[in-house]
Design a protein around this nucleic acid. Structure first.
Lengths: 204, 204, 204, 204
DNA sequence: TATGAATGAGAATTCATTCAT
DNA sequence: AATGAATGAATTCTCATTCAT
């Protein structure tokens, strides 16, 4: 039983991985279910053993990528380092993901679009909404710690700042998608410096 | 002849407007050409008198919206005001557009997605790329003027900063789309303050 | 009034001519009514002043070409020449028309097809039927005269022979259409000779 | 695997047969793909599993009929019989096919038309061209054998005669299509006799 | 459990025809 | 009489999904 479940889970993940690659390359609309099953080395019908529809598979890819990125970001958050350094690291790490996994990251564009017009628009919407909420919380907490520990100006609104930090990192991915010459890591670094230069008490 | 051309242009624009509304409401995939023609009060075939395909009409909407937004942004750029104020105004104006025209802004999500998998992906890509290039230039010029006039720190890289500013405004729209409670105008204001606090020489 | 009628007739014929050329080049299915109106230098609506439908125009072309060919064939039939020579001339003339007006002649293929599946199939059928009837009559009369005048074997069935003569000339056009290297005039000459002279040695 | 291939081939042939019947009855233009699928007792989509388009299916019908007719004609060609008798048999057999399978023969009219204006015009053209070439060769060989064996006049051009013989049989089908009262078998017999025996009295 | 042949709902698109000017 | 913008009926083809094996 546990063997079977493992197998099942294993094949399910194989399908999610295959789907991620094919969707990333061709986009949701141009991807046929058979493209994915072929890429995964299984029959077309098998996909429907694990997912009830193409959109559900797409949603599974969304959740998987969402988690992959989050765990990578969370890994670099460290409470024992100056808040400024943590923020800078988060910026750089995100920029690195954007640059290294350009194709995968570009799927965001379609996840967003799926929040309108897809049969799963509510689930995609909710997924994005909670994801942004989490990131804002994560960021706000870093900012607040910096303020508590006297690193950052206490008069700034941590929540509002967080909205913009998350925005900036998100938008960076968009620009990089459209223009390969955009230097995400460089821009993220400059952003960290400029923002902290304004945020940090000791530099004044 | 000029009458006819005018008429033609007139009806073309009516169709672009109708399409923008329907696409904004339903998304590209869920919108049938007949939905648009009905909304415009014309027959289905008429759409094809002006646009050779559904995607071409979509692209026309893209260009139209791109121009609408740009002209609105350019209108608030003023060279005789302190750079800091111009930047703040640009932020606020963008945030206002995002908030007031939520539906229209949401089309961005689909324009972006169309850069992957649409038959016109190259045209959408090129359109977005040039748009971002323009906005970065616009922003960088404000920053550079601020540096020349002694308002802003001269050691920061204007081009890199511009990338992030454009990113932040773009990403702001995304978050607002997913979460109506996000206060775009407030966040933009906080961003302006934080960023300028770091940028501005006289505050140090 | 007579002026108007003349005008009307004139423009009608211009349309038939234009249609013949365009249909000959593109075939019925691929030809749009606007292709014809443009070729004739008039507006699309004008075609409908003279013909109630595309198929009716096609039928008019059919009748026109039918008459053109018939009058050319009839012109060479001469009752004061030996039947053998008349037959030979009819063969050669037909072969010449086939060769010189290859494109126009190839429209036969579509007239034939129109006798099945076109809305006018009955009219096309009847038109072809009567045309073949006429040609058979024309040919049979020549053969009969030849028999009366002692030129031809009296024991042969003139009607049956006529069927085949008409067949042969018709089929010649088909082969020439598909293979430009087929020498219609040469084949027609050989046919005349073989038919008149007989193939078999031992029967002489 | 061979089972599957066989199955596949089997259903493909079922579709070709169904298509032949429906096309023969209604003509290409008036036939909807769903008419064929219904006639074959399968779903509309199934047709597209075996043929990429309506025109490709039509072409498959063309090739099938071409082969069917050829094998029937080749079956009656016999090298050990006097050439005259072989020719007579070929004529009669063709006339019989024309008479018995009037509907199927009528497809020729559309195959011909498809050589002008169809998306596959080149393939239809090439198919017809090679078919005529084959038939001319077949006929010419019979004539040449007759000449070698002293049955036929040696001074006639076998190639040219062949063109006309093929023409005559083709044209016979056309006339029979338009006029059921035309006696194809009788005409073919008279043709054989006249051709072999010669029409002209004075040359005997 | 895995498969892929079969299915048919659904949409884009074409173009003959109409009719207001 | 002449026009061509507007129309929508009609049809092909796609592809997600089902289900018998």
């Amino acid at each position: 039983m546990s063997q079977a479940t493992l197998e099942h889970t294993g094949k399910r993940q194989i399908l999610v991985n295959a789907a991620a690659e094919v969707f990333a390359r061709q986009g949701f609309a141009k991807t046929r279910v058979s493209d994915i099953s072929q890429h995964a080395g299984v029959g077309k019908g098998t996909v429907y053993e694990y997912f009830s529809s193409k959109e559900e598979l797409f949603f599974a890819v969304f959740e998987w990528i969402k988690n992959e990125i989050r765990s990578r970001v969370e890994a670099v958050v460290n409470d024992h380092t100056p808040a400024r350094d943590v923020l800078t690291t988060v910026f750089r790490t995100t920029a690195e993901i954007i640059t290294e996994h350009r194709e995968i990251f570009s799927m965001n564009l379609e996840f967003w679009a799926a929040s309108r017009g897809s049969a799963f628009e509510d689930r995609f919407s909710a997924g994005c909404q909670s994801m942004y909420h989490e990131y804002r919380e994560l960021t706000a907490e870093i900012v607040r710690r910096g303020q508590r520990e006297g690193e950052f100006r206490p008069d700034l609104d941590a929540d509002r700042i967080s909205v913009v930090i998350v925005s900036a990192l998100d938008g960076l991915g968009v620009q990089c998608w459209f223009d390969e010459t955009v230097d995400a890591v460089g821009a993220a670094g400059a952003f960290a410096e400029a923002l902290c230069g304004g945020l940090c008490v000791e530099e004044r």
